[in-house]
């Protein structure tokens, strides 16, 4: 009878805690923390009248579906070359050439802060976002998207 009273009913929680800590470490290592950001654009709204208003100097980026990009300057009084074309590369848009051209334009025309992106219907959304990202990188403050004609 006395032997029964000495039985140890305590649960050994040490291995349980060890397993738990290993599990937590495993979850921490395998978890994917996806942080989301946003790329902001300012669009022209339907009731905005442009009649009589002075448009700021702007850069229009026309994107072809095959990766070709055309840059056009508008309302830039001192601009000598109004249009410039960047040919496509083997992977699509020639990003290095575009970045260099945007940087050169910003250096040449410091007042050039507005840009409008005009993609074609078959242009990839990822490429459109990447062009807008490059424009933001080149310190263009107002970046907008043009609807299809």
């Amino acid at each position: 009878m006395s032997h029964k009273k000495e039985l140890n009913f305590e649960i050994n929680i040490l291995p349980i805690l060890d397993i738990l800590s290993v599990l937590i470490c495993f979850l921490l290592l395998t978890a994917v923390f996806v942080q989301i950001g946003t790329l902001d654009t300012k669009q022209a709204v339907g009731d905005n009248s442009t009649a009589g208003a002075k448009n700021p100097p702007s850069l229009w980026v026309t994107m072809a579906a095959d990766g070709g990009v055309q840059l056009s300057l508008r309302n830039v009084p001192k601009a000598k070359v109004l249009e410039s074309r960047i040919g496509k590369s083997t992977k699509g848009v020639n990003w290095e050439a575009l970045e260099g051209k945007l940087k050169a334009l910003r250096d040449q025309y410091p007042d050039l802060k507005t840009s409008v992106v005009r993609p074609e219907a078959n242009t990839s959304y990822g490429d459109v976002i990447r062009v807008m990202d490059h424009l933001k990188q080149s310190a263009f403050e107002g970046v907008g998207l043009s609807p299809l004609g």
Binding site: G37, T38, D40, K42, L145
Partner: peptide
């Protein structure tokens, strides 16, 4: 006027 495109 303001559109925010979700990106990574």
């Amino acid at each position: 006027e303001k559109l925010k495109f979700a990106v990574v």
